[in-house]
Design a protein around this nucleic acid. Structure first.
Lengths: 193, 193
DNA sequence: GAAAAACGTTGATTTTTGTCAACGGTTTTT
DNA sequence: AAAAACCGTTGACAAAAATCAACGTTTTTC
């Protein structure tokens, strides 16, 4: 149930069996069916979720009601509307399941308490935030500096599994493009080889 | 010399005078003249810098030699090529001073050691990363979901001081636009009021 | 198992943005 | 103090991307 969670945790910082048992007390498992919401815009995001199995996406709606995907999460990734979670403010993101999911949830209270009582948890979170921040910096750097075809190729290499698993119009949305434009970009790339 | 650094530190987590003195031993002051580099692409980014005074920018060069600004830093902000710093890999960013600067540097060795010996430093870094990550998420969400004029207004509110202090063609670059387009966006906004 | 919805692609057209050139007015350099 | 570089804007034009519509296929729903 928590296998992947602790595998990833231990990759960042090793835990003893006792420590794992302690952390486990603060976690809640949750199953989510395809198309179900984890968070809706306006709710406070009460949990951060770790994906044991399945796939999720986060998106925002614009004034014309169009969806813009801001993030994905596959097995081993962590997702939530972080600002809403940390500041206990209404979420601006919607998060729903693209496939049936098995998740590990950490509530805000559990998060705060673990940070207080367990230095290794703070180290884990520090490293998680650092990695997430570096990944997002890379994404934004590519966004503003690479021409479209190179950007698509770079993203493909950055997220190989994701691009196989998720419909292309969602990838387009994630990249800030229309589905048609992405289709044409892919066409140009395969023609030039 | 380190006034603003410790002011910001204490806003996140309070230090005693003794603790401040300890941290101070790990810091190095540095002055940078306008146009001087803190890091150049290809170097390993050996320090993260905190801005006591002045302004810096980070940028990448594309294949045609054009600059794309990825980040700015004003007084009280922290900047570096984080991936390069953490992984000791060659930097992909260039960082230079837009104005004469007074900086506080933390070397990788000092960073690692402080994290080891001082739990409050780890808390400080965790909060710094969390805040930086949330800010970057907001920026990228705006990037893909807001139409140009709203995006410009949102950025103006997000970084009011920055937009007054930095030339507009750099703001344009930061937003992934040409200088001419930004000029026209501003024009449309002032006409519609 | 049939109907409906979702998906990816293509073509025609419109809208948006970039590019190039020029300008007057700064600021910086020497 | 003069020369050079930089800055923001504008106009004319070219390039890129979005939009709209249609299509055959696949997947989901009931």
């Amino acid at each position: 149930m928590y296998d992947l969670f602790f595998q990833k945790f231990n990759e960042k910082i090793a835990l003893t069996a006792e420590e794992e048992a302690l952390v486990k007390q603060y976690l809640t498992p949750k199953k989510l069916r395809r198309k179900q919401y984890l968070v809706q815009e306006g709710d406070v995001c009460k949990n951060i979720c770790f994906v044991e199995k399945g796939a999720l996406r986060a998106y925002v709606l614009d004034e014309t009601g169009d969806e813009h995907i801001t993030a994905f999460a596959l097995e081993g990734w962590t997702l939530g509307d972080l600002s809403s979670f940390i500041k206990a403010e209404p979420a601006t993101w919607n998060i729903d399941a693209l496939e049936d999911c098995e998740l590990v949830l950490i509530s805000k209270q559990a998060y705060d308490e673990l940070l207080q009582i367990m230095p290794k948890y703070e180290t884990y979170i520090r490293l998680l935030m650092t990695d997430a921040y570096m990944a997002l910096q890379r994404r934004t750097t590519y966004m503003i500096s690479l021409p479209l075809e190179e950007r698509y190729l770079a993203f493909t290499q950055m997220y190989p599994t994701l691009f196989q698993r998720v419909p292309q119009h969602m990838i387009a949305s994630f990249m800030g493009l229309s589905a048609e434009t992405l289709s044409r970009v892919r066409n140009r790339i395969s023609n030039r080889k």
